[in-house]
Nucleic acid binder design. Structure first.
Lengths: 138, 138
DNA sequence: TTATGTGCAAAACATTTGCAGGAGT
DNA sequence: ACTCCTGCAAATGTTTTGCACATAA
């Protein structure tokens, strides 16, 4: 695991973290790149990937391995769950209590050493639910 | 959504489904391709992708949007959860009751129309847990 | 017979990596 | 100074797609 102590405080890292803290959405690496590029036009996409990965390893941010084709990143590091819109792919936090007991239940049901879990709810965001109604007339 | 009625029963589709039913693992598209190719050497990878996608749409199989870089496929369509080994990426089923109430809890905690959920446990499979012990002496 | 499916190859994405030069400590 | 980091571009890995031919119904 990456150690915090050996990690230099570069402009790139500061700005990536700042931009991630600004939003409540869960941007993809490419979206972070776009956000950061407004302030640092010469930053490379590779740098963004490298640093998001590094920050996720140190626990500064969360890397969400949710459905869809791209990984997403989240500056809220306290444990919580997510909803993903099946239509547009948007991901939001869910403010509900973490299900404490289920790791133990799972551990008894398999031969893995269970270290954690993540729940991803799927559904339709308010926008997509609305337009779904309109188009479902055919 | 793809309709079952308009889906032709081709050799390729039969064999892909047969091979998927044979295993309890959760193969990636490429692993399915390798399995199927032993019986149908001229099948194209594109055909495998197209058909896995189609079968997932009709509900014949499950497409697992779990962590890691590749999608995985599962012939067990009854609702169940998964464990993924953080070390080797292996995915297994967990035989534990589906948490019935949590969709309602989530629905009250956000503005989505909740349609379902999936729980992914993370940990170490028995193989990796063992070798972890050996290497952790440094 | 004809719409649907297939093999093949190219394209499209998402992510990682090698390297020469740049910057934090 | 001496690492560690960055930008750039090329490479890699996964999935999708266009097209001419094949085939199930």
């Amino acid at each position: 695991m990456q150690e915090l102590t050996s990690m230099r405080l570069t402009t790139q890292r500061q700005i990536i973290l700042e931009e991630l803290l600004k939003v409540t959405s869960h941007p993809t690496a490419n979206e972070v790149y776009d956000m950061v590029r407004k302030r640092l036009p010469r930053i490379g996409l590779g740098t963004v990937y490298r640093n998001l990965e590094l920050m996720a390893e140190t626990g500064m941010i969360l890397k969400l391995e949710v459905g869809g084709t791209q990984k997403r990143f989240d500056a809220t590091v306290t444990p919580h769950y997510h909803v993903r819109c099946m239509e547009c792919g948007k991901v939001d936090d869910i403010k509900m209590p973490v299900q404490e007991g289920i790791n133990e239940i799972a551990a008894q049901a398999c031969h893995y050493q269970i270290l954690g879990h993540h729940i991803e709810f799927t559904g339709l965001c308010s926008n997509c639910a609305r337009s779904q109604q309109k188009t479902s007339i055919n």
